[in-house]
Simulated scan of single mutants.
Amino acid sequence: MANDNARDVDRAWELMKKIGFAMLVTHDGDKLRARPMSAYLERDTNAIYFLTDARRHKDEEIARNPGINLSFANASDQKYVSVTGTAVVSNDRGKIKQLFSTPAKAWWNSADDPNIRVLKITPDDAEFWDAPGAVISYVKMAAAAVTGSRPDLGDNRKVAL
């Protein structure tokens, strides 16, 4: 059982890294807000980082309620990961310089932009869906519909991170 759990944890991190982008869901009062973000994973420290802008509302939302959800999705490959965790925003200039890369250049001219902040997510747990791909999944669903059986659409696991 322990090896299965370790393998499932490995798979959750692999899927997040491969997908690379997540919808960050925060609490805006009694509503939920989601926006796409480019993820920087550091599994060794159990952290997922994002660069964010101090002029945007997500920083204020996180300050009021640090509980978040990250939704990673690659629909064409039928790979999904949902992560729950806790977020904190900082102005760690060293970390900003470390994470600043091509995706960040779409939003800021340089790592020295005073509006850039680091959003660090400490994940609590994840659930992933790892299917064999869209075409195979559709074939399995069609076969199941004809035979009246349930399709085997890959793995679905919940893991503590």
Rank of each mutant, 00 (worst) to 15 (best):
T122V: 09
P132Y: 12
A87T: 04
D53A: 12
V81L: 09
S101F: 13
L51T: 10
S82K: 11
A160P: 02
G148Q: 07
S38V: 12
M1G: 13
D30Y: 03
V159G: 02
N5M: 11
R157V: 02
Y40D: 12
D77F: 06
R157A: 06
T84Y: 10
P103S: 15
K97T: 06
A54S: 14
A6T: 12
A6R: 14
K140M: 04
W107P: 09
A54N: 10
A143D: 02
H27C: 01
A34D: 07
T84D: 12
V118P: 11
L41C: 07
D92H: 11
N91E: 04
A144P: 00
V83H: 03
Y49I: 02
V118H: 12
K31V: 00
R43N: 02
H27N: 09
P123W: 04
R7S: 11
G133M: 03
Y49W: 06
D59E: 13
N46D: 05
L161S: 05
K120S: 10
M23I: 00
R43V: 00
A22T: 09
S76K: 15
V159P: 00
D53H: 11
W13F: 02
L161Q: 08
N91D: 03
R157L: 00
L15P: 07
F72H: 06
L32C: 03
R64N: 13
T102P: 07
E14H: 12
A126T: 00
V9Y: 04
I121N: 13
D92A: 11
R43A: 02
A106F: 14
R56T: 10
S90H: 04
P36E: 13
F72W: 07
T52P: 00
K158L: 04
F72A: 03
A6W: 04
